[in-house]
Design a protein around this nucleic acid. Structure first.
Lengths: 191, 191
DNA sequence: CCATTTATTGACTGATTAGTCATTTCGATC
DNA sequence: GATCGAAATGACTAATCAGTCAATAAATGG
């Protein structure tokens, strides 16, 4: 009866994702999650002993999926420019195609209910990104900006573009992605 | 007895700000707010008929204070570069010196409990900023980037720098502010 | 100092909360 | 089809929730 187990666990995660992003952590009751997932209130606690375990599992799953999707095929890109362009494009496409995941990360990335342990494990999955940033600084391509500066500006700007496309100008999607990258890449690399 | 009134109202707003940013909207009970403010539970509802009125008042006050602080003396700056530099610097200094306000805006800028009316009124206070962006585009200084693109990238990047200084490298504060501006300004203006 | 208004109080309410647990249902194996 | 362990259930609990309101206190004006 493995199949059933996965079904209900996945349904609970999906319901939580929807309700947490809509109403926040405290704004979502476990009863509501159970109902949305189509299971009894007690069943939720068979899979996730506490409400916090649920939000940690979501954070772990979503950030993990994203990191694997970003890391894939990166080594096939020859130049640093192409690698960062691929990450930029994939980040934004992921945000646009997985809006619930995107908004969940936005809302809960600094939530006190995500444990330090979850955060550390997830952080480790992004070392490939930080290594790329370090490379760019070591080769002089990124001037003398600090690693944190480059990593944060690049990542946060990609999220800005997703919001921009979602809420302001969905018609110019590709131009917005390209313009955004042009701005940030120019800023980071031009002397 | 006007004095007393202002005292308690201000105390309630201050307590709400602290608790909302720490524990979220639903994570903060009205009883907890009253206690923190040093008033009875009933008193809270004399000033703010509902919990949502409280968060709307906070949003209105904080964003209003910020807009007035940013708009001040902008016309004394002669070039577009200097105007944007002043806004950049003031935004970041405001974030660093008013961390609770900063995190409140971060957390609740897209909260469903902030009414459309509050949002509209507040938005109107930032027209000076959007006019500056329009100027830069009209004069060709910002290339052919869209207004939304320039306004969002600039504003969000300033917030990124605040986070960076607060959580990564507080020692290099001024370099971080200057480097961040250099990156964004180069990206926006260089052809 | 009285009268009237206005601000403050906290016990109270009905609804809702996260989490429990005794019971029932299910699915596999013989 | 009998047996057994795991999975699912929902009524239940003690705590907490936003908001009310009748009673009290304080301030104001005459």
């Amino acid at each position: 009866m493995k199949k059933q187990v996965e079904d209900k666990k996945a349904a609970l995660l999906q319901a939580s994702l929807k309700l947490f992003t809509e109403n926040g952590f405290h704004g979502t009751s476990t009863a509501h999650i159970s109902k949305e997932a189509g299971v009894a209130t007690g069943t939720l606690f068979n899979y996730f002993p506490t409400k916090e375990d649920l939000i940690n599992a979501l954070y772990f799953d979503i950030k993990g999926k994203l990191s694997r999707s970003l890391a894939k095929d990166i080594q096939n890109q020859s130049t640093l420019h192409d690698k960062f362009w691929k990450i930029w494009y994939d980040l934004i496409e992921w945000g646009l195609n997985n809006q619930e995941d995107f908004h969940f990360v936005d809302q809960f990335c600094s939530s006190p209910y995500i444990s330090d342990y979850t955060r550390e494990v997830v952080m480790g999955e992004y070392s490939f990104y930080h290594d790329l940033v370090k490379d760019g600084i070591a080769t002089g391509e990124f001037g003398d900006y600090s690693e944190g500066m480059v990593a944060s500006i690049f990542y946060q700007s990609s999220r800005t573009i997703v919001d921009l496309i979602l809420y302001s100008e969905p018609q110019d999607k590709n131009k917005a992605i390209e313009d955004g990258f042009a701005i940030i890449w120019k800023g980071l690399t031009e002397k």
